[in-house]
Amino acid sequence: MAANSTLLHLIDVHKHYTRGSETVRVIRGVDFQVSEGEFVGLIGPSGSGKSTLLNLIAGLDRPTKGQLFLDGVDIAKLSEAEVSQWRVHHVGFIFQFYHLIPVLSAYENVELPLLQFGLSARRRRRQVLTALKLVGLNHRLSHRPGQMSGGEQQRVGIARALVTDPSIIVADEPTGDLDGHTSEEILDLLDLLQNRLEKTIILVTHDPRAASRAARLIRLEDGRLVAGDESTIGAAFPGWQGTLT
């Protein structure tokens, strides 16, 4: 997929935490851009700051310093309420452990984000069914998370992430809790989102198979970008014998 205009632009982004008298510098001046429709893998060892960076991109946390533009908006400057509203419209989040609401059915879980859009029930239903059909779960509408397999739950999680038609989908280790075969199915689904719907996807992963699906890898180490755009699957995971798609 040919890259279009810049969707995400990070400029000298820092994130520090204070633990007692100690300041922990988790992100130390990260700069990069992601274009519309790109599938980017965010990789690096544990504690390198991947999830923190993903939280910053998704507006779940604020940078200590720097600018973070998504769709032309510097989200670091928005208030908590504004960023919350902005996130509903622009970001779809896929979690490692799915985090579906256990008392709601698959349908109701996917419908949740739409409730803040003021849509008619009919329109909501249409969007929910479309999303669930896309992930191949239109036959499991009334099932609760506890009645579904891990792979199915993650599909519901993906449907929930894309039901609002967000600008960007961020996925934090989406295959981390799944077996190899199911992981492949989920990665195929992400590929589909990117290829067919031209969704911009940022994927945090430890898994070389998952990373291999990304068109570009961004490698973090100790809160800094290593190699940037030049990172390759081979460099990122030395000795990995898989093939790039």
């Binding site: 779940l60 996130r87 989040f93 949740l112």
Partner: peptide, 11 residues
């Protein structure tokens, strides 16, 4: 779950 609701944009 409440954190997830917040992520999904609930105030």
């Amino acid at each position: 779950e409440m954190a997830v609701l917040k992520v999904l944009g609930f105030s």
